[in-house]
Amino acid sequence: MSRAADEPVRLTRIYTRGGDAGETSLGDGSRVSKLDARIGAYGTTDELNSLLGVVLAGDCPPTIRESLELVQNELFDVGADLCVPLSVEGRLRVTQEMVDRLEALCDSFNESLPELKSFVLPGGTAVAAGLHVARTTCRRAEREAIASGLEHGVNPLVTVYLNRLSDLLFILARAANALAGADEPLWKPGATR
């Protein structure tokens, strides 16, 4: 039975045994080692998406929730882009419009936040702390996408998207604390001396 056009995948069985020898398939069907840089890049993107799921499972403010749900879906698009060699045409790719949308969200949420006069320590509310964990994972995904690009070539908008997303996650962490009326933990240089 073939898939419908709006059905991105049909999984009838989760285990395939195809990866038991340390290899997996890219989106074009080619087989590579699970240690391939592309697998690391989209694996970390998947980890980031899972962390956003944890944030969304908590007491996430509705305005932040809406943005994170959009980002979760787009992260699957990022993973789809990373798992198909750049030379394959006609596949789902990260676009400038996706980056522009992140920048608009950054500007919108940042507008009401107080100016920063110190570095922010991860914490405050559980939502803010979770967003900081997601932010650092996003930075790792970005580094792994860059490494994959050096080795295999990657859509340059993937790394731009991840870079902008880490900025948004930082801003959303600050916004989560502000919306909850929680003090923002700030770095106090040399405070333990």
Rank of each mutant, 00 (worst) to 15 (best):
V84L: 06
V54Q: 15
L51W: 01
G29L: 02
L11Y: 11
E7C: 08
Y15N: 10
Q72M: 04
L75Y: 06
Y42C: 00
D59T: 15
L82D: 04
G79A: 09
T44A: 13
Y42Q: 00
E69A: 06
R65C: 11
D46Y: 06
T12W: 13
S67V: 05
S25C: 12
A41M: 07
C60R: 10
E23T: 00
A37Q: 08
G27P: 07
E23D: 03
T16L: 01
R91T: 11
D28S: 09
G90Y: 07
V32G: 09
R38S: 00
Q96K: 10
G43L: 02
G40S: 14
A41Y: 10
G40I: 03
T16G: 01
L56K: 01
S67E: 07
T16F: 01
P8K: 03
E74P: 12
E47M: 10
S25Q: 14
M98F: 02
A57I: 11
G40T: 06
L70R: 14
K34V: 00
E47V: 05
R91W: 08
T95Q: 07
R10V: 14
R31Y: 02
L11W: 10
V54P: 10
A37I: 07
E66V: 05
V71G: 03
L26H: 10
R31S: 02
L75N: 06
I64G: 03
E74L: 13
G58S: 11
L52P: 00
E69Q: 11
R38K: 03
L51I: 02
G79D: 01
E74R: 13
C60E: 09
P61A: 05
L52F: 07
D46P: 00
V54F: 14
P8L: 03
E89L: 15
T12E: 12
K34H: 00
R38M: 00
L11S: 10
A57S: 12
T12L: 15
I39Y: 02
G27W: 01
L48P: 02
T95M: 08
P61E: 07
R31E: 03
E69V: 05
R13A: 15
T45N: 03
E89G: 14
L68N: 01
L11V: 14
S67A: 12
D36G: 11
Q96S: 12
S25K: 11
G29D: 08
D59Y: 11
V99M: 06
T24A: 03
G58K: 10
R10N: 14
D36V: 08
S87T: 15
G19P: 00
L82N: 08
L48R: 05
G18P: 02
E74A: 12
R10L: 15
V84E: 08
L86P: 08
A57F: 05
L82I: 08
G29I: 04
V32W: 05
T24N: 02
S67K: 08
T16V: 08
D77N: 14
Y42V: 00
D46I: 02
E89I: 14
T45V: 14
N49C: 03
S50V: 04
M98D: 07
V78C: 10
V78E: 03
Y15H: 11
V54K: 14
V55G: 01
A21K: 01
L68T: 01
